[in-house]
């Protein structure tokens, strides 16, 4: 099943095109990496897909629904989860309350004002925390969590609306090398079992080459290469605009 299809996506902020005629599709259960130099248009692509920016031209369908004109919260309700490059959580709340908050929104309980929040969806929140291995932290204040745990909490929050598409912006940023691998393996496992398509950007090539099923390379707004990790690694064009001489990632990935 195709969870995301993008056709002819174009964006300019008045000047030159920042995203130029980009087309691709993402299948359920697939991990697709979007890489490219800084300023290539990766963030712009991401923000158009999640509804923060409008597009100049092109078509985006999420689970078959055309998203033009939809704001971020409507797009979220289509079944799109997000994690941020630098974690964004509700620091005044406990860990489980963070997940519950997303569940309140998903189950449309936001107008409830007469009953204490703790009565709603605690079980479901616990199950999500369990899924990312955070069950033991449920009662902790969120602001006491270590960075790697915050990343996992974000994943649990992102899964609260049973998404079919997960957008992860530099998921490995700020983590130690092995933590990165573990987070990405966890995400991949969840993607496969729940048939979620994951689109992610990343500068850590170890993570990209190891975990992406497929890689797209963006340069100056144009999709210059798309293929399997090994093909991307060997592409002279990608080396010239992005990868460099290859001193910054491991030589091979299992």
């Amino acid at each position: 099943m195709t969870v995301l299809s993008v056709k002819g996506l174009t964006k300019s902020f008045g000047g030159p095109k920042v995203v130029d005629n980009v087309s691709f599709a993402l299948e359920a259960g697939e991990m697709l990496a979007l890489i490219g130099p800084n300023g290539a248009g990766k963030s712009t692509c991401f923000n158009i897909i999640n509804g923060q920016l409008s597009r100049s031209a092109g078509e985006i369908r999420i689970l078959g629904v055309d998203t033009s004109g939809l704001d971020p919260s409507r797009i979220w309700r289509l079944g799109v989860g997000r994690t941020f490059q630098i974690t964004e959580t509700f620091l005044s709340m406990t860990v489980i309350e963070n997940v519950q908050m997303a569940l309140f929104s998903h189950h449309r309980l936001l107008t409830v004002w007469r009953k204490p929040a703790r009565h709603f969806h605690a079980r479901e929140a616990e199950a999500l925390l369990d899924l990312v291995g955070m069950a033991e932290f449920a009662g902790r204040p969120c602001r006491q969590l270590a960075y790697g745990d915050l990343k996992r909490l974000e994943l649990a929050i992102a899964l609260a609306n049973e998404p079919k598409l997960l957008l992860m912006d530099e998921p490995a940023a700020g983590m130690a090398p092995r933590e990165r691998g573990e987070l990405m393996s966890l995400a991949a496992r969840i993607a496969k079992t729940r048939a979620i398509g994951i689109l992610f950007t990343e500068h850590d090539m170890d993570v990209v080459f190891e975990h992406a099923d497929r890689i797209m390379v963006l340069n100056r707004g144009v999709l210059i290469f798309e293929g399997l990790p090994e093909a991307v690694r060997r592409s002279a064009e990608v080396q010239a605009v992005y990868l460099g001489a290859g001193t910054l990632y491991a030589e091979s990935h299992a």
Binding site: N50, Q52, P72, S73, W76, R77, G81, R82, F84, E88, T89, F90, L91, S92, M93, E97, Q100, M101, A102, F104, S105, H106, L109, L110, T111, V112, W113, R114, K115, P116, A117, R118, F120, I157, A158, A160, N161
Partner: peptide, 28 residues
């Protein structure tokens, strides 16, 4: 006080805590 601890009160606190995260879970 009841409102503060209700789902609505949590949403009010959530949009204060993190604009990005609350927008990303469908809170207006």
């Amino acid at each position: 006080r009841l409102i503060v601890f209700s789902p609505f009160g949590y949403a009010f606190r959530a949009v204060r805590d993190s604009q990005l995260r609350s927008a990303a879970i469908g809170l207006d």
